[in-house]
Design a protein around this nucleic acid. Sequence first.
DNA 1: CTTATTATTAGTATCAGGTACTAAACACAA
DNA 2: TTGTGTTTAGTACCTGATACTAATAATAAG
Lengths: 189, 189
Amino acid sequence: MKNVKLNKRERHTRLVEKLKEDPFLTDEELMHMFNVSIQTIRLDRLELGIPELRERIKNVAEQSYSKVRAIGGTEIVGELVDINLGTSGISILETDETMAFLKTSIVRGHNIYAQAESLAIAVIDADVALTGVANVKYKDLVKAGEKLIAKAEVTRKRANKYFVHVFTYVGQKQVFRGKFILASIEQKN
Amino acid sequence: MKNVKLNKRERHTRLVEKLKEDPFLTDEELMHMFNVSIQTIRLDRLELGIPELRERIKNVAEQSYSKVRAIGGTEIVGELVDINLGTSGISILETDETMAFLKTSIVRGHNIYAQAESLAIAVIDADVALTGVANVKYKDLVKAGEKLIAKAEVTRKRANKYFVHVFTYVGQKQVFRGKFILASIEQKN
DNA sequence: CTTATTATTAGTATCAGGTACTAAACACAA
DNA sequence: TTGTGTTTAGTACCTGATACTAATAATAAG
């Protein structure tokens, strides 16, 4: 690994990087990485305002958990900010580099699609819903870091089929439009 | 809350429910909820095979953490097994529980879509390609664990627009069909 | 070279939220 | 009454920390 001792400044920047990559590292593991004592790591965290392992893990857990929890178990891509079951809903997705092409930082289509599709499913007032048909158009490019606001509206319901329209915006600009036909599944097992 | 003492069986079912709702509850909080001693709670968890708070939190954190990585990490969703740039390509995606709905183990649509879309982009003989329009149909359910074989074919090319058809199979059975219109982007910045 | 000052390390006490184990008390049914 | 299951009490120990004191090492300033 790193068998050379860095100075404080360098160690601090690297420490922040390391923990960004992997927030599950204990002080002990970090101490070996940087070849300093555990006290030094703790002083560093103190100076940098980095919480302890258990807090870090908890933060990661709570973040993603509250999103899922809001709707009571349904898995959603993005954060649900408003929902009227059976009629409409809004979700927000903060894009980042991991969702984009390396070279261009342009967000890949399937991330935008995933947000829209999962919102469409969430809006349906049914236990389990599946996409039958989707008709989508990407109207403009989305760059990593932009915030996607998706608005879904149920336009029609026929038997167990739902027609849902989703429009996604970055600010005022529409970047995506999708029509989904969803089927709610009956538990017939 | 509950000021009546339940019997073991009832308490166990309720305990499982409670922790499903909120895995961040400590033994102490649970002990107050059920009006029993902390040892009883610990015996209960032991019998039910429920890990301690810190483990539960860690599980939640790790799950959602790896999910973010998985959906963002690769440029191509699935494994590219054959490609003829500009004409056709085949990719394989092994599905698992993380791609599926919890209750039903049915693979969520956007995973199937992501495989198809990224294969369509890969097939295009251009530096960067973006989905303009997609028209897809999910023809049958996919269960977690099944292997998706996606076959893409370029059907037409006009200026910088490509028309790509993707068919996805599980074994011999077709589960998905998609038409994508992709645009290759010129670096005009 | 000799102080200051900063950086690092050592060591102890304490905490939360547990595990693991022993033993006692209680419930109530045969 | 005796047996069996359930609950509680209590102790020792664990991890990954905080909070604190004090000593030592490294580097800069005089």
